[in-house]
Design a protein around this nucleic acid. Structure first.
Length: 793
DNA sequence: TATCGTAGTGTTTTT
DNA sequence: CACTACGATA
């Protein structure tokens, strides 16, 4: 094989591959084709970083690692090269045959791990990879830090004295444990709140300080208190075979550090490591990343220091800033071209973020059109603000669709006023986050049963269900059980399953035994029944359903619906895991999936969420509401340089979600925890240059922006408390008692007479109906409310 | 032992 | 305002 031949082949191959990624810009392509070694991708908002990530993986799998390879395999023939050169002269993508010739040392999908922060991001990554690569994409480890660690731990955690059936405690569970710890240690919560201690512990874990290490370092009295709590807290978790969120990462790092054979196995497995949102990693996550990538050092991290918004939970931008020191020969590529937003939006966002001092410094630019200026609205209160947003969306929508609009706020509580205004004005909406399904007491109860069946040592969950529904096992008995367990060094369950062994439990022995039998009986069903059927049996056998049915009030019925709704989560899980469905797997998924994606994404609705939740998303039209000093930036950040900068980054993230238009609103006064407060306009608004605004400040007092059509402004509903006991969540449950409306149905309304349903827009457990009434015009009504005055004809 | 009522408390963002 | 913790009562 001559040198000239090799050269021809390599040139043709390189050019073909470059052309395969011709829809990327120069920098993006460089990022895709730089496959070896440490790579830091500084990717601004809207710079197409996810696309780059996906193409990068696709390139590895399709063409192999070395786009700059110097080798020419001996199976390449003259005919091959000629074919390749000819293909170069023709437009269009490669044929499969030619692609196969270009594939030198293709990378196995299972040797790639792509880590993200949120499940949403991981899901999107998976979907897009699958769309591009087909079934082989399933072997790529595309998941969150936590789920990746769980997967490793399930296999390896035995070494650390836990079992693979470990339980995961969420923040609420951790807090419960900590409160118990403090109660037993006679530490007053008013002196030192449990949350604060947990925060300290979390920070200790981030620095890899185990209880015994922390104990040695505890300097002052306060730290000694924390230390005592830490020791006991960790002991309880260990005894319950339970891990909190931090432990999941911490123990994985420990495992990889201390056990050479484990470390080597994973380092050999993962030839390519990719980490998204690197600016949000904490120290532990950095260590984990470094360990995983430690074998081949093919590590690509993507991040944007301006979008770091999780400092409050330990994320440190240092990881980005130090990357080039930590990894020798790291390459840096900046992606600064923005493909998402108009110039006006980008200018405004750039101007705001410029006020931060601790940044790596970059300026996004775009070839997009100038676009319209940013609209600013000052409302008198949150009701008017919400109403304004509703009206403006209604006016802007035209023939477009509602899903083009997003409303972003700082705190979940702000959704209330918006929800009311949208309901009243008949605009369909969808709320992401907020009160979570899995946080509902009744759902947690059922989950607690499942956890206990999965891991009998889970004391916390055991205590939650042992007397729920009431079985006559009261606080007194449980105290005794606890004491005995403590003395014997056994999990509660073992003591209470052997009550005749302890004289002190004589009196309640029968009750305890029947509970234990119940649990064991249910657990046995797991072997014979499918997960959903097993769950049905559980709901009945435990008497939980009966308890709720007996009460029979509205609230209980709603709760029963939620209990049954959990079944569909199980069904969904089983469908997604045809081969490896297990109770353990289901519970893990639930524990790590705080944000439930069960909403109907196909419905055409305005979406509302916190600014944090919006990271990584984009919308044609974005509304930023509640832009007031004290709310955003939040009160506790004012006067704190560092925290203020984080808040500003959050603002930057929020603004850069918008593609075409950005509307910024605030209220002169608003109800905040039952108190009316007057707030100044947010400093972030002041930081937007005048010439980016559609309506410069002077004119602000007059009507701004287009008025809602039904002027003078849509009426705001009277302050009635909509009777909503626990309604907030049934959102996802099919509302059985509601008549199903379909377009074309004839209806009779007590006030409007005869009409025909034109459109139905599902919104949670309700639906927005558009009905043309004979002689009364077209009305928009919520199905739930309207049904009281209307029936199908 | 279960339930109800009251007083007190704390309110960001998420895996 | 909303939620929790705790204490009094059936």
């Amino acid at each position: 094989m001559t040198e000239a031949f090799t050269e021809r082949f390599l040139t043709a191959r390189r050019e073909l591959i470059r052309r395969e990624f011709s829809d990327l810009n120069e920098r993006q392509r460089e990022a895709v084709l730089t496959t070896e070694g440490p790579l830091l991708l500084l990717a601004g908002a809207g710079s197409g970083k996810t696309t780059v990530l996906i193409h990068r993986i696709a390139n590895l799998i399709r063409f192999g690692c070395a786009s700059d390879s110097r080798e020419c395999p001996d199976w390449i023939t003259e005919a091959d090269v000629e074919q390749m050169e000819q293909a170069l002269r023709l437009p269009g993508p490669m044929t499969p045959e030619i692609a196969a010739r270009c594939a030198l040392r293709p990378v196995a999908p299972w040797s790639i791990i792509a880590i993200t922060f949120t499940n949403k991001a991981a899901g999107e990554l998976k979907d897009r990879l699958e769309a591009m690569l087909g079934a082989q994409a399933q072997d790529i480890w595309a998941m969150t830090f936590h789920s990746a660690c769980c997967r490793i731990l399930r296999r390896e955690i035995d070494r650390l004295g836990y079992t693979g059936r470990f339980t995961i405690y969420d923040t609420a569970d951790s807090e419960r444990v900590m409160k118990d710890v403090m109660h037993d240690a006679h530490i007053d919560e008013r002196e030192l709140p449990a949350r604060l201690i947990l925060n300290q512990i979390s920070r200790a874990k981030d620095r890899m300080l185990f209880p015994e290490d922390y104990e040695k370092r505890a300097a002052d009295y306060r730290e000694q208190l924390v230390s005592r709590c830490y020791v006991d807290y960790q002991r309880r978790l260990r005894e319950a075979n339970a891990l909190d969120f931090d432990d999941i990462i911490l123990l994985t790092v420990k495992l990889l550090q201390d056990y050479e054979e484990v470390r080597e196995a994973y380092q050999r497995k993962f030839r390519y490591v990719l980490v998204d949102e690197y600016q949000d990693t904490n120290n532990l996550q950095y260590l984990l990343t470094a360990l995983l990538a430690g074998g081949y050092e093919n590590l690509c991290v993507v991040g944007d220091d301006d979008q770091s918004i999780y400092r409050f939970r330990g994320a440190t931008i240092e990881n980005i800033l130090n990357f080039e020191n930590q990894f020798k020969n790291a390459k840096l590529i900046r992606l600064e071209q923005n493909y998402r937003s108009t110039k006006a939006i980008l200018d405004a966002a750039n101007a705001v973020i410029k006020h931060n001092r601790g940044r790596k410094g970059k300026t996004l630019w775009t070839k997009n059109e100038d676009g319209v200026g940013i609209t600013l609205k000052r409302a008198v209160n949150e009701a008017e603000e919400a109403n304004y947003v509703a009206g403006r969306i209604f006016a802007m929508k035209g023939s477009g669709s509602y899903r083009d609009f997003a409303i972003l706020y700082r705190t979940n509580a702000q959704s209330n006023a918006l929800e009311r205004a949208f309901k009243f004005n008949g605009i369909p909406y969808r709320i992401i986050g907020g009160t979570r399904f899995f946080d509902r007491a009744e759902v947690k109860d059922m989950l607690a049963y499942l956890w206990v069946i999965n891991n009998r040592a889970d004391n916390l969950r055991l205590l939650r269900v042992v007397n729920n529904p009431p079985r006559g096992i009261g606080a007194k008995t449980l105290e005794t059980v606890d004491r005995l367990a403590e003395a014997a060094g056994l999990p509660l369950y073992l003591v209470l399953s052997d009550p005749y062994h302890y004289p002190a439990l004589e009196k309640s022995a029968a009750k305890l035994m029947s509970f234990v039998l119940l649990i064991e009986e249910c657990a046995a069903l797991l072997d014979t029944l499918s997960l959903p059927d097993f769950y049905d049996a559980l709901v009945e056998k435990t008497g939980y359903a009966a308890m709720l049915e007996a009460k029979g009030d509205v609230e209980s019925r709603t709760r029963l619906e939620n209990v049954r709704e959990l079944r569909s989560s199980l069904v969904g899980y089983v469908e997604n895991h045809p081969d490896d469905a297990s109770l353990n797997g289901f519970l893990e998924e639930i524990a790590l999936y705080t944000d439930i994606e069960a909403y109907d994404a196909s419905a055409d609705a305005v979406v509302m969420m916190t600014m944090h939740a919006a990271k990584g998303l984009e919308f044609p039209h974005v509304f930023l509401v509640g832009m007031e000093e004290g709310l955003f930036p939040s009160l506790r950040c004012i006067g704190e340089q560092e925290e203020m900068e984080e808040e500003r980054r959050l603002c930057y993230v929020a603004m850069t979600r918008a593609k075409k238009s950005l509307t910024v609103t605030c209220a002169q006064q608003r109800m905040l925890y039952g108190r009316t407060t007057a707030n100044k306009v947010s400093r972030f608004v002041e930081e937007i240059p005048q010439d980016c605004l559609a309506n410069p400040v002077q004119k602000q007092r007059q009507s701004l922006g287009p008025q809602p059509r039904q002027s003078p402004g849509l009426p705001y509903p009277p302050q009635h408390r909509p009777s909503r006991p626990f309604q907030s969540f049934v959102q996802n449950a099919p509302a059985k008692e509601l008549p199903e409306y379909r377009p074309g149905d004839s209806v009779v309304h007590t006030a409007f007479g005869r009409g025909m349903v034109i459109s139905v827009n599902k919104m949670g457990n309700d639906a927005l109906l558009e009905i043309a009434f004979d002689g009364k015009g077209t009305k928009r009504l919520m199905a739930r409310t309207a049904s009281a005055h209307m029936k199908k004809a």
